[in-house]
Nucleic acid binder design. Structure first.
Length: 260
DNA sequence: CCATTAAACACCC
DNA sequence: GGGTGTTTAATGG
């Protein structure tokens, strides 16, 4: 039985341990890790609160230590579009840092979340000096691009049940969201925002998927039972979000980081 | 017609 | 109070 959405714990890794074990930190020397750790701080963001807002100058690269956040935009008329969710272990916000422009979307905590904030200077310093870090950022951007291709495809040629199946499956990208839990702590309303579907359609689609044994509906959450089944759901088109489980590791390569 | 959705509603956690 | 499931009225192909 999926847990309700209120009783999750906020533990997760300590900030310094999360940085030490991050896949983008593979070629950093201990003193360089120490600088990243000392400059990066942590905040706990309450459910529904903003981690960053549209229009903010990009001050930090953001890591989800524990919890779940979403990238979304609200139109002046109040229409909400959610682009993606980022779970524990995921990092977000590099786009505004790389452009050095104001944020184009809100980053909102869907559940109370512990967020690591890496200052822009540290992000740029890592980008200047670390090959592994660059590989990580490239890979992450590429993964996101792949997700959006997949999204456009299912948006254009698939029915809503397939869209919702693939949207949910896309959240479980092992590179972008290594810590995504099978118990999705998302209301059907949120899933609707995420998939571009109405609440009714979302509800209906989730029940279809439950009848097929692919998910289990709980109260305020959905448990993913058969991830590959979700990825493969549909009319035979191989979804772009499908990938081998072992994929997505940043290769350790030679390359140093000069101290600033 | 048929499909879809926003809004409103009554439960129930 | 918020999430879910259902009905209803409006909309558009």
């Amino acid at each position: 039985m999926p847990r309700s959405r209120d009783d999750h714990d906020l533990s997760g890794p300590m900030l310094d341990e999360a940085i030490r074990r991050a896949p983008w930190a593979g070629d950093l020397r201990p003193e360089q890790i120490a600088r990243v750790v000392s400059e990066t701080h942590e905040r706990t963001i309450a459910s529904g609160s903003f981690v960053a807002r549209q229009g903010d100058p990009p001050g930090h690269w953001l890591g989800v230590l524990n919890g779940l956040v979403k990238l979304s935009r609200a139109s002046p008329a109040g229409r909400v579009v959610t682009f993606t969710g980022i779970a524990s272990g995921g990092w977000i916000g590099e786009s505004a840092l790389l452009r050095n422009e104001r944020r184009r979307a809100d980053i909102v905590a869907v559940r109370t979340s512990r967020i690591a904030l890496m200052p822009r200077e540290i992000f740029l310093w890592l980008l200047e000096g670390s090959i592994v870090f660059n590989r990580f950022v490239l890979h992450q951007l590429n993964e996101r691009l792949g997700q959006y291709f997949s999204l456009v495809e299912s948006d254009r040629v698939q029915d809503s049940v397939t869209r919702i199946a693939h949207c949910i499956a896309a959240l479980f990208d092992p590179f972008l969201n290594p810590g995504m839990e099978a118990d999705l702590q998302l209301s059907q309303q949120e899933i609707g925002f995420l998939c571009g579907a109405s609440r009714q359609r979302t509800n209906e689609a989730l029940h279809s998927l439950e009848d097929l044994g692919l998910v289990k509906i709980g109260y305020g959450c959905v448990r993913v039972v058969d991830l590959d089944g979700l990825r493969g759901y549909g009319d035979g088109v191989t979804p772009l979000c499908a990938r081998p489980a072992a994929g997505g590791r940043t290769q350790p390569v030679q390359g140093g980081l000069r101290d600033a």
